[in-house]
Structure formats: C-alpha cells, structure tokens
Design a protein around this nucleic acid. Sequence first.
DNA 1: ATAGGGTTAG
Length: 486
Amino acid sequence: MSKLHKTAVGPKFPDFSSAKTPLKHQIAPPPPVDVTSITNLVLKANPEILTQKLPTLVQWTPELVHTILKRLWNHGPKALQFFKALDSHLSYTHSATAFDYAIDIAARMRDYKTLWALVAQMRARKLGPGPKTFAIILERYVASGKADKAVDVFLSMHKHGCPQDLTSFNSFLDVLCKAKQAEIAYNLFKVFRRKFRVDMISYNILANGYCIMKRTPKALEILKEMVERGLEPNVMTYNIILKGFFRAGQTKEAWEFFLQMKRRKCEIDVVTYTTMVHGFGVAGEVERSRKLFDEMVGAGVLPSVATYNALIQVLCKKDNVENAILVFDEMLRKGYLPDVTTYNVLIRGLCHVGKMDRAVEYMDKMKEDECEPNVQTYNLVIRYYCDDGEFEKAFELFEKMGSGHCLPNLDTYNILISAMFVRKKSDDLVVAGKLLIEMIDRGFLPQRFTFNRILNGLLLTGNQEFAREILRLQSRSGRLPRHFRL
DNA sequence: ATAGGGTTAG
C-alpha cells in the first residue's frame, strides 16, 4: 500500500473561495493528498454528498483511487459508493485496475448482480474484462463454494471477449487446488490437457493441490504421470512434494526425500531449506531445525527473511520466546529487514506466554520500521486480550482500527463476538448484537452459527426486542436455519 | 499477470 502524506492531520485542501483571479485562469498547485482524511470522509458522508463533493476534492489519479479502494477493502459498501461517486463524474474515468478492485469487492459481498454489471461496463468502455478480471471472479466463486459455477464462467470467458489460454487455464487450476478442489481441477485437466497443451506448471499446480489435501500418494502419481509424458520435474516440483510430506505429518519420508534430492544432485535452494527448517521445527524437532538452518549457509544457500521467520516461529512455539528474540536480533545485525510476518510471529509468541506489554512494544516498533501493523497483527493481539479477559484493551485496539488505516475484517468481528459470550452478561450480548449489525453493514456475511448463538444469547438474557431485530436481519441475509419459518 | 518456503482459527 502506498504511503502518501500520512502526517497531515485533517483535510487541508486549498481554498479557492477567496482567490483573486478566476479559477479557470489559475494554475492550481497539486493539492496535498491525505489518504486517511479522504478515507474518513468517504466513511462518514452519505452517498449523495459523496457524489457532489468527491470529484473536485483532489486531483484524482488512478494510483490514488487504488490506494483508497484498498483502504476501504473491509468496508465493501463504502468502497463501491466511492467507486460509483467518482465514476458519475465526467472528468474522471476509472482504470481497468480500479474496475478489477470494484469487481473483487462486489464478489466478496456476493453481490453478483453488481459484479456482472461492472464487467459489462468494463467491456463497453473497452477496458476489459481481461484475464486478471476473470482470475478474480473465478477465485471468488470458488471461495464461496461455487466451484461448478466457476467452471461455467471459465468456459464462457471468451464470450465476454477474453479468450482462454494456457496461462488462464493454469491459474484457474491453481485457484481450484488452493481451495482444496484438486479433484475438480484434475477432471478439468484431463478434459482439456490437449486443447491447452498443458505444461510442467500445470502438473506442479495439481501435485500441490493434492499435497494441500494431504494426499501425497496422489501427488506422487501426478509426478509420475508428468515424467511419463516427457516433462522433467524441477526444484519447484520437488519442493512441493517435500512440503507435502510435512503437511501430511510424514517427517520420515520428508527427510528421505531431502536426502534423495541431495544425492541426485538436484539443485537445493532456499525454499527447500525453509521448508525443512519449518517442517522439522513444527514437528517438535527443534535441534534438527536449527542444524538445517546452520547447514544451509555452509551449502552456499543464504537464508531469506522467510527462513528467519520459519526459525523464529519454531523457537516461539517449541522452544523459548527469548531464544526467538535472539534470532530476531541476529537477523537485524546481519542486515535483514524484518517484515510483517516476522513481527506477527514474534508478537504472537510474546502474547502466548502472557507478555502482552512486550508484544505491544514490538507493535509500536514495527511502525518505526516502516512496517505498519496489519489486520492480522491487530487481530492476534485483540484475540489474546480477549483470552485474558481484558475486553477494554481489546476494544481500544478495535476502535483504533476503525478510525484509521486498517479497518477490521471478518475475523476481527468474529473474535470480538465470540469474546462476548464468556462472561454471560446481558450487556455483552447486546454488544455482540451491535457488532453483528455493524459487520453486516460493512458487507460481511456472518455464519448461521453466529446469528443463532447471538439470538439465543439475547433471548436467554431477556433482550427479546433486540432479538427480534437480529432475527429480521438474519432472514434478510438468507442465513436462517434450514427449515425455518418466520 | 499461470507453480514452491514464513503469520491464522482452537
């Protein structure tokens, strides 16, 4: 996410009302752009005001629009309002990328009507839809459990002006595999392997798909099939299988496979080592993990930030946070730049042993390192505060998110709502209900389970009136229990 | 904008 003038406080847009020369003769200086204040304006203002005010607010550029859309990622309805408000103005036309963002947001809200309307607009303006657009649409359909619909969409892409090719085919296979639909992917693969002239990448994607489902034997079959068809496996193929063994809990097989890779003089790279360090570590073999880490440098393979992250996580989980911090310091000394994952791993480790204050210290330290805490950072600290019964502190962080550059996501709401059940207090359940309403407002669709438990809680604590309101929301959202009648 | 490693829900 780009970092445009973060320091500005409050809107500071040039005021032309008292300008001596008429506006049209004046060369306007580029106004200072403050993403946070624009975002907050969008969050607060209603759609009509937005349509009036927004277009002339600043000099809009595609990059700025993308930045704002990303900021509003976790407030889908507002993001789309923003998109439409700008679109209604003649002096600005959205880029293809902005359309892709908007389509992604609509899809995430399962607003398929808006999604396809945007696709049609895109086409009318000759901006697409392109392969990227379809990658997004396919991923969202698969993610919401509509793999069959996704297959239909893929097969009809060309009718929207976007012909399928090997790349789009492979990326669809990958989407299916990552969503644990390797079987569907493989069936599709069998039908179209000749048409698209599948390659090594296709095979790697499928092997990985079966590994994700912990079906290493099937992944090995894919590997065999690949060789039979005259395609040579590469390091990525081997790394996929190696990771697969760890995923399936087959550490013995993983070790054997690693030795075999060495014996066959296959090029062993930093990913191989990171997989090994992580795999053995989380399996509880910390010594082996450390040894592999030390071994790699001797083997001429330099650790990456990801390798350090793996080791740090292992030490946090299976050893001692203090040792993890030693490695963190070492990594700094060697000139590595920790990333969000590094911090999140370490902060989680500290939270886990109850050192909340130090965790928060690291959270502040990230900001100094130009490594802004992300939703995951907030969510994990909020979760641990809740576990400790420190609800006030949890909500303090939650408020901070809402007011700034990191809006709460679905997980944040689920964490807080769950926490509102532990004290069995009537007030807490009302808070849970309010959180539920807010999350729906922001375009998230709570699970049936969430509705039901809040409803039950409210009824048990005598909040019948509020319960009725929640029930209305539930019926409108299509999340009523099966066979339920109002 | 096609494939592999590191965060996550017990």
